[in-house]
Amino acid sequence: MKILYFAWLRQKIGRSEETLDVPAANVAGLIDHLRARGPGYEAAFRDMKSIRCAVNQEHVGLDAKLGPNDEVAFFPPVTGG
């Protein structure tokens, strides 16, 4: 699946996107997998109150199911306008 990071998540992780083959059934499972990838990921996903997620460009919760071709994005609460 394609994974995108925005704002300070991108800075902490050090990349804006990556394609990974992760056997995660839902978003929470994917986050567990990502945290184990290194200290940058661990720092980015430390405070889950500050993390929002979208699957295929729709806002979702941590229990949202994932498929192999999904586009998953992680970002902080939005601050546009």
Partner: peptide, 21 residues
């Protein structure tokens, strides 16, 4: 302001900080 995925990074003399919602 609350749903569209935009984020603001503020620059000041003291450094850059992401705006919190």
């Amino acid at each position: 302001k609350t749903r569209a995925p935009f984020w603001k990074l503020e620059e000041r003399k003291t450094g850059s900080v992401w705006v919190e919602a």
